[in-house]
Design a protein around this nucleic acid. Sequence first.
DNA 1: TGGAATAGAGTTTTT
DNA 2: CTCTATTCCA
Length: 586
Amino acid sequence: MKLSIEQQAAVNCIGNAYITACPGSGKTRALTARIAKNVQELKHRNNKVLAVTFTNRAANEIKSRLEENYTIESGRIWAGTIHSFALEWIIKPYASYSPPLNAGYSIADEFETRKILNKLKADKGLRVFDEINTTFNRQGVVENSDRRAKEVEQEYRHILKSRKKIDFDQSLYFAFQLMELIPEIAHTLSNIFSNICIDEVQDTQDLQYAILAKIFNESFHKPTLFIVGDGNQAIYGGIGGKSLSLAELNAEFIGSNINYFTFSDNYRSTQRLVDYFSVFRGVQGGLSKAEHKNNQGIISFFNQAVDKDQLAEAIAELIKGELNNGSSENDICVIAPQWAPIRSMTKKLIALLPNVRFDAPALSPFHGQHDNFWLIVSKLALTEPSGRLLSVRVRWANEILNHLSDVYHHTSELTAKKLLKVINSFQSETRIGTEYLKECFEFMLDELDLDLVSDVALKEQFDLFFEKATSNIENNNGQYEDSVVALKSFFKESTGIVVNSCHGVKGEEYKTVIAFGLLKGFIPHWSDIINQPAYVGQNAESKMLYVIASRAKEKLYLFAEYGRRTQGGNPYETSNLLNAYSYQYD
DNA sequence: TGGAATAGAGTTTTT
DNA sequence: CTCTATTCCA
């Protein structure tokens, strides 16, 4: 992969590196190059490179870029979210030493935790949207200034404990606790991982820094650090994401003496776009220069000019125009700050443009079940063994094998190849999606000599999987369709116009970006406005707008649509910053 | 009846 | 927090 001089300097830097740079300057490109370089330079057979980020989407981005640009033996690198790292490398192997975990545990998913919290809030006379903090800091303290919020949090922990469940926050805290209790964990990890790479570091939480720093600080042979981020894109502050300065990183990773780099060139967008979105940038970083000299392209803002009921038609027209002008479906992305309007938009767009393909993850009836064993199996069941999916399917098959051996303690000589062969040979007449999957799972269990009667955990996952999917299908006014064709279309090679949340497309780029819902209360969210000093809302707002506008390479269409109403019936207004930004729009 | 005090509306992103 | 509507009281 070709690197600029700035990027090469960072990638080839001896020692530790911290890079902050503007969007589109090739931070992730440099990171993947560094990972590949690190892998080549690994000294011992058992050494690995660790690459962590905050979201699954960002982790998958790293994996795909590595797969596309380099040939790396899969065992030489571990890439994923910090949560999954803590689970796989600390909690699972050492759970028996942890007092809260040694009696057994499983992970509570979002459905369960939200249900418990909502019930407790109602009992205490709090409203569903009153905020309850559940994140631990490194002292193990969960800060809630409100008395009732604190009580809710404590009772919530009791309920989880009685069910032998841990939530996402506890998975991090117990991992950190274990590392404090047993220094050998950090020693072992630092012996395995000779390099630690962190992408999108501005979204990392306090406890996550603490875990990574512990590995570094306790090690005898210091791993090298390669840390990449952009404080101006820190849009996870609301859930504890924290951007650190170079000095703070140096203090965290003791004696790391990190070299600082920044990239000044933008390889993504036209100069006109770079100038446009630079206005939303905070204090960090200088002006960036676009490599593309052309000032063509479009920046449009439909400020209260389109009614929300005509919005889908307007966006469909834009899409049609783009496609007629030679853009491909993969060049276009439609984003909004919240999922609810995205779902209805997706549905309308699909109806309006029946021949256009969309990549819209929100339509899966399985969302919220990432960790379910059967979700991975259904990915295989619903995809064809061809094209780019070939290598991805092998990855999924290996995940299934890992689950079977680690979580369910099956010791068989099953290989990924055999598993794929079994699932590929499954055939069924049914057109009903969930029925098709059920048949396929039973076929697979049968072929592999497994059965649900003797395996309680696998059975529990099996039941939950269908229970939640069915509930999604039944309760959402037909948004989710239970047909084999619909389910297959969800997992098929992700091509088509991306429809996603602003958070979801962070780190990605598109020739044409169409953003809607740019309204005060969405951008920034009410919780950044209510009971907050004005600067909190302004910061949150400029970061979100910065992320949104900087996704675009050539064309940016912005909508602050008219006609959306709050629960009380008041109209939503254009987001403050956009309203105040005087710009010569097309 | 005018000015001050109080109440109410506005509710997401991710693991 | 900010904006608006309502209530309170002299």
